[in-house]
Simulated assay, not measured.
Amino acid sequence: MTSALITLPKAELHLHIEGTLEPELILELAARNGITLPFPTLGELREQYEFADLQSFLNLYYANMAVLVTAEDFADMTRAYLSRAKDSGVRHAEIMFDPQAHLFRGVELATAVTGIAEALASSEAEFGISTGLIAAFLRDAPEASALEVLEELLAMGAPIIGIGLDSAEVGNPPSKFVRLYKRARAAGLRLVAHAGEEGPASYVWDALDLLGAQRIDHGIRSVEDAVLVKRLAKEQIPLTVCPLSNVRLRAVDTLAAHPVVHMLATGLNVCINSDDPAYFGGYLGSNFQALVAEFDFDADTLATLAGNSIRSSFATPARKSELLAELAVWRAHQD
C-alpha cells in the first residue's frame, strides 16, 4: 500500500510553509545568517518538539522563524517542502504563509513574498506540482494590522490567490475579522479560515456566515453540532483535516479517537493535509499512511479523500480535470 499511497494523486490544501522548516534547515539558515538560537544543537532543538497544546507549538514555531531573513531563505524553505511533497504524491498545493509574523520581527513583506513566489513559479516544471499562495492572518493580532498588510499585499501585486486565518484560535473568534474578509472578497480573493480545531463548533458557523469562508481549515469540532454537520454535508463545504497535527497538539487524544471516520460516514467533504509537518511528525504521505494503519482505509476511501482534495482546491478547472483523470487511472490499477 505504501507505493500506492505515493502514487495516489492528491492536493494539499492546508499547509503552512513556515511549518515545514526542518530542524536541520533551521540550523543551516541560522549559521548562514549569523543567528544564535536558544537551542543551538540538533538534539537540543528536537527535544522541544513535544507540545501540550496549540500555544506551546506556536511559541516554538515563531521562535524558529528568526532564521528566515533573506528572500533566498524563504525560497530554500519552499523548495524543500515542494521536494518532500512530491515524494508524498502531491500534485497541487495551496500554501499558506504568515506575512504579519515576518513583519513583526522586522522582515520586509517583499522579502518573504519574493522568496516564496520564486520557488512556486517553477514548482510545476521542477516538481510537477501546481501551486497557489494564501496569506494567512494572525487571529491573535488586531484586525487593523491584518487590513494594513492586506492592502500592502494588494498594492505590491503579490501573487496570492486568497486569505486565511490562523494562530491562537480560542478567544479569537471569526467575528473579529469581518472587515478583513469583506475587503478580500471585494479584491476577488478566495476565502478560507481555521475554525473548530481548539475553538468550538460555533466558530465554524461564524467563519461561514460572518466571513463567507469557502473552506474550513480543520473543522473537527463540527461533529459536536448535529445541525452544523447536516449543513456542511448538504453544502459540501470542504474541511481540510490534519490528523497527525490534531494528535500532536492534543486536539484529540489518539489517532484512534480522531473523528475522521465519523466525518466521512456522515457525508462531510473531508480531505487530508499535513498542516505544519516539520513539527507534527510527517508530510502528507505520512498522514495517509497513519490513517491506513489505524483505520484500514481501502482504495475507495483513499480515492474519495484524494478526489475531495482536488475538487476542493482553487486550481483551474482544466487542472482539476487533469488530476481527477489521473486519480481515475490510479483507482483502476488498485483492483
Results as ranks from 00 to 15, higher is better:
102 H>C: 06
263 M>F: 11
124 E>L: 13
261 V>E: 12
118 E>H: 14
76 D>Q: 14
207 A>K: 00
243 P>M: 06
3 S>H: 13
57 F>L: 12
130 S>C: 13
187 A>G: 06
303 A>C: 14
155 A>F: 08
121 A>K: 14
256 A>Q: 14
30 A>I: 01
50 E>W: 10
205 W>N: 07
267 G>K: 05
227 V>T: 13
76 D>R: 15
120 L>M: 11
229 V>I: 09
304 T>C: 12
272 I>Y: 01
145 S>T: 15
96 M>H: 14
168 A>H: 13
129 I>D: 03
81 Y>C: 03
298 D>A: 11
333 H>Y: 10
184 A>V: 05
164 G>N: 10
225 D>R: 04
290 A>N: 09
225 D>W: 00
31 A>I: 05
237 I>C: 02
228 L>V: 08
236 Q>L: 10
190 R>N: 12
209 D>R: 12
231 R>W: 03
110 A>P: 01
157 G>R: 07
86 K>M: 14
113 V>D: 01
183 R>Y: 06
282 G>F: 05
20 T>Q: 04
143 E>Q: 13
116 I>D: 06
120 L>Q: 05
204 V>I: 15
221 R>M: 03
233 A>N: 04
177 F>L: 09
200 P>V: 08
33 N>E: 03
146 A>N: 01
63 A>S: 11
98 D>I: 08
53 D>T: 08
322 E>H: 13
58 L>Y: 01
112 A>D: 04
221 R>W: 04
273 N>I: 11
74 F>A: 02
329 V>T: 14
249 L>N: 02
297 F>T: 00
37 L>P: 00
126 E>S: 12
89 G>A: 09
16 H>F: 02
150 L>Q: 04
167 S>Q: 09
149 V>R: 00
259 P>K: 09
250 R>N: 14
143 E>M: 11
119 A>Y: 02
141 A>K: 13
274 S>R: 02
153 L>E: 02
313 S>M: 08
181 Y>T: 01
176 K>A: 04
301 T>A: 14
77 M>K: 14
247 V>E: 07
213 A>K: 02
278 A>Y: 00
261 V>C: 10
228 L>W: 04
265 A>N: 14
148 E>A: 15
22 E>D: 10
124 E>D: 15
281 G>R: 05
140 D>R: 12
30 A>T: 02
216 I>Y: 02
118 E>V: 09
242 C>E: 03
129 I>L: 13
115 G>F: 02
196 G>C: 06
287 N>T: 12
305 L>C: 11
167 S>D: 13
123 S>E: 03
118 E>D: 15
81 Y>F: 14
260 V>Y: 00
78 T>M: 08
162 G>S: 08
148 E>Q: 13
152 E>S: 13
122 S>C: 14
324 L>F: 07
